[in-house]
Nucleic acid binder design. Sequence first.
DNA 1: GGAAAATGTACATATATGTGAATTTATCTG
DNA 2: CAGATAAATTCACATATATGTACATTTTCC
Lengths: 246, 246
Amino acid sequence: MIVRQAANVLEIMEFFAQTRKPATLAEIADHFGWPRSSTFNLLATLSEKGYLYEPRPRAGFYPTPRWLAMARMISEVEPLPPWTHTLIADLSAETGETASIVAPAGVSAVFIDVVESQAAIRYFATIGHRVPIHATASGRALLLQYSPEERDSVYRKIEFKQYGPSTPISIEAVEAELRNSISRGYCQSFADYSRDLAGAAIPLPIGDRRLSVVVAGPEFRIGPKVAEVAALIARTVDRLRPKTAA
Amino acid sequence: MIVRQAANVLEIMEFFAQTRKPATLAEIADHFGWPRSSTFNLLATLSEKGYLYEPRPRAGFYPTPRWLAMARMISEVEPLPPWTHTLIADLSAETGETASIVAPAGVSAVFIDVVESQAAIRYFATIGHRVPIHATASGRALLLQYSPEERDSVYRKIEFKQYGPSTPISIEAVEAELRNSISRGYCQSFADYSRDLAGAAIPLPIGDRRLSVVVAGPEFRIGPKVAEVAALIARTVDRLRPKTAA
DNA sequence: GGAAAATGTACATATATGTGAATTTATCTG
DNA sequence: CAGATAAATTCACATATATGTACATTTTCC
């Protein structure tokens, strides 16, 4: 069950992150199609808690810097080592595609750092983006780091859907693809989840965290050179990852 | 009316900002005294939206860097000019007390930047902290920048409460204090709102934004030297504020 | 300067939602 | 490796909650 008002908080914040300017109650209510009275309650709650204020009279609400302060607190812990950002920055620069660091979240894989391609046609992904763990290169690079039992427990929660022609729609199909990935030396995906989207990924264990790196873009650009891209990823990781310990 | 689940989202994030480590469903539920099933729904919603993930298997949830990305977006707009932070940093260093930049939010004043005192006994305030606009030095320094009509409209929404012995409990009392502040050259408050708390504040208009600076601390330390502190604030603003235009 | 339009606020009520109990899944212990 | 214990999910139902309606206030426009 989805908690509506919790989701609404996030939506409001995303709204402000997009528009980047104060908005009145009426504007917000209209934008989302919410009743004024409900919007009123939500804004009042957020204000009450110190997360919204009124920068100038009658110009509406805007988030306080408290969000930033809180987010900084949260993200200071176990930040990714700096070289991982260099990694995806380099990969994106060299391939011209979008590169990301990905972490597990139940049956999904979450993008926790992203450097976007500069190309006009590109894979558009942002931090926080979620994709099915079994139907993407990045997700499978995570699954490779699981024990068979752990994978089983994930599989049982997956709702297998035919996202595209090549989506694996059974446990056995996923396991088969994982075996292929091992012998191939990297994970790949061709429109398994998103139409026209292809990617290459490899596991990226850091400490006891199970992460993966992925380079993804339109099938017609990535397709012909997956192997090449995968090799580049591996080389770049080798170059940047500190040699001391794992 | 307060929107419970909206508030809960904020509480969860504050919880993570404090503990700074992943937490399981059970831990979170116990911490807040929430039913597990409700906690489950909330966590599922936040995960679904890409704001929580599971850094390592079975170790529970933690916020994704998406919070940081969003907060950065939001705060990049009209950030406070850098000299305002220098201002409160200097004030806090010189007085040994907590110094803040404050903005209006309806009948409240919100702390939008804070440098805390290092003293053992100190005014504990964080970004996002809210205080009644009429019963605090910082708030009254905001009201001074309003037109009489605007003040009226604020007054009508205020619930006058006797927070302390000297709290102004009528419109006339507030207006009188504002007149005093003008002739005095600064705003002050002695336990008008919080017991033992005293402060000195002056208006700090920046562009068309109505802000104020306040230095606050325990009454016994601030009390004897309010005038001195107020003069210091004024001098420091003079020194740091760029001379070009207002 | 006055009327109309837009915005913000309060409240009772129907209903969407949170929750207790039951069920399943994972983890620990001897 | 059972059996026990704890954690995570599911689900039906009572109730806390979102909203329609009405009212107040502010702003706009003529």
